[in-house]
């Protein structure tokens, strides 16, 4: 739709509530996309922030229904991730689990962190395209159809690639 209103500050006020709603709905999805894409830690937050800043600067271009906004937002997120990889090598975060206390909940939390660190390591060994699909599917929670729309792959192709990637991850995990 990309309606262009005649007065910018008028437009800004009119879309303020819309963007606030979309921001809170989409932030966790974008954030988790980056956690699965580049690993946990400050980098995921930085790239999430960069994505939303770019989206906000160009917000008059987005469609106002949530599904279209989500697709548009992840188009930006994918570019941000690509730019990041162009600039630097992927980072594998290391969590300081050894510093945690032995409280039962903390042990559970620490185990989860250790598992995610291990998963991140396995993800980092995947082909770039496969890792991106995993991040879109399991990090951001997008459907295969939405992922297909974003990546240009067919929906069935997305399903097949994810299935094979999952099999590969499973065998690595259990090795």
């Amino acid at each position: 739709m990309a309606k262009s209103l005649s007065i910018p500050w008028f437009r800004a006020a009119a879309t303020e509530a819309d963007f606030a709603e979309l921001y809170h709905a989409e932030l966790p999805r974008v954030y988790n996309f980056f956690r699965y894409r580049v690993g946990d830690g400050p980098l995921a937050e930085d790239l999430t922030a960069e994505t939303f800043e770019k989206a906000w600067r160009n917000r008059d271009r987005y469609r106002r229904d949530l599904a279209a906004f989500s697709t548009w937002l992840f188009t930006i997120a994918r570019r941000v991730a690509t730019d990041h990889y162009r600039k630097t090598r992927p980072e594998i975060p290391l969590h300081e689990v050894s510093h945690l206390t032995h409280d039962e909940n903390m042990e559970e939390w620490a185990q989860q962190q250790a598992d995610f660190t291990r998963l991140s390591l396995l993800l980092s060994r995947l082909a770039d395209r496969d890792r991106e699909l995993v991040a879109l599917k399991y990090g951001a929670g997008l459907t295969n159809r939405t992922i297909a729309g974003l990546t240009g792959l067919s929906e069935s192709n997305v399903g097949v690639i994810l299935h094979r990637t999952l099999q590969s991850l499973r065998s690595e995990w259990e090795a």
């Binding site: 932030l27 966790p28 954030y31 988790n32 956690r35 699965y36 937050e45 999430t48 989860q112 598992d115 995610f116 998963l119 995993v134 399991y138 990090g139 929670g141 999952l166 991850l169 499973r170 995990w173 259990e174």
Partner: peptide, 15 residues
């Protein structure tokens, strides 16, 4: 490892 396992690592952004 399955879909549930892979999605359990999602977390809410810091407030």
């Amino acid at each position: 490892m399955n879909d549930d396992f892979l999605t359990r690592f999602r977390k809410t952004p810091r407030a």
